[in-house]
Amino acid sequence: MSKFNILKKEEFVPNFYKLDIKVPGIAKKAKAGQFILVMVDEHSEKIPLTLLDWDEEKGTISFIVQELGLSTSKMAFMEEGDCFYSIVGPLGEPAYLDNFGTVVLGGGCYGVGAVYPIAKKLKELGNIVITIIEAKNENLLYYEEEYKTVSDEVILVTTDGSKGERGHIYDILDNMIEVQKREIDHIKVIGCNVMMSKVSKLTKEKGGIPTYATVTTIMVDGTGMCGSCRLSYDGKTKFACVDGPEFDAHKIDWEELIHVRNTSYITEETLGLQNFSPECRSLAKFLERTKEEETS
């Protein structure tokens, strides 16, 4: 079953991989802000990944993987031609898009890529798009050139100041609002929950500029069946997989999401990663291949 073949794999910065896979059904229906659920092999977890790009004609989809836990480490060891066991999508509601006026997009970690289709679409809708991308240092910044084609302004920010501004997305936003007195009509952020919660806190304090965040949660089925991805939103329980993943950031209970819901499996995740030995995997692959050669 060569259903979900990797056509292309690229490591553009350390530990960040871009994978192109042929899934025509998803490529045809995907909309900016949606995600897929991926299983590497029969034994894997199902993990959600935001779509980076898709090509309806070629029937391909692309997504970015940040090597972090067990499943993403497995992906890092996959090669072109290897197959995923299962890919389901497109899932979730598309991002809220309109002609807002001036839009600031913030992307950190995996979100640097995930913001891209949204920027593209917002630009098409006639917005003035300002994209801020954040990384720890210059070696981890990616997609800068691509963003230039879909943004009116691209601002780079690194924690150590090795490239662009020094600091974080919320520092840049703070500066734009307080010092530069820029008119911002809409903000969207994708990245780690901590970064997004800080942006949310900031914009809530500064007059409540509409801010939307694409939350990162733990999921199982992605169809609203299990409730693993639930979060408290405006006093109600919402499921990120079907009600989101994009939400009005000001209404999210960030404290609960970051410190309660998403840390449920810290021990298991760490253990899982420790049990995963790249050497074993590479060796298994080597043995498999030599066996194939022998038989042929």
Binding site: S44, E45, L70, V220, C226, L271, N275
Partner: peptide, 19 residues
């Protein structure tokens, strides 16, 4: 679902964790 479909009862052979 974690236990049956994702076979978390066979963790860590199957990777899906279950508290």
């Amino acid at each position: 679902t974690r236990s049956n479909l994702m076979k978390a009862y066979l963790y860590p052979k199957y990777n899906t964790p279950l508290l």
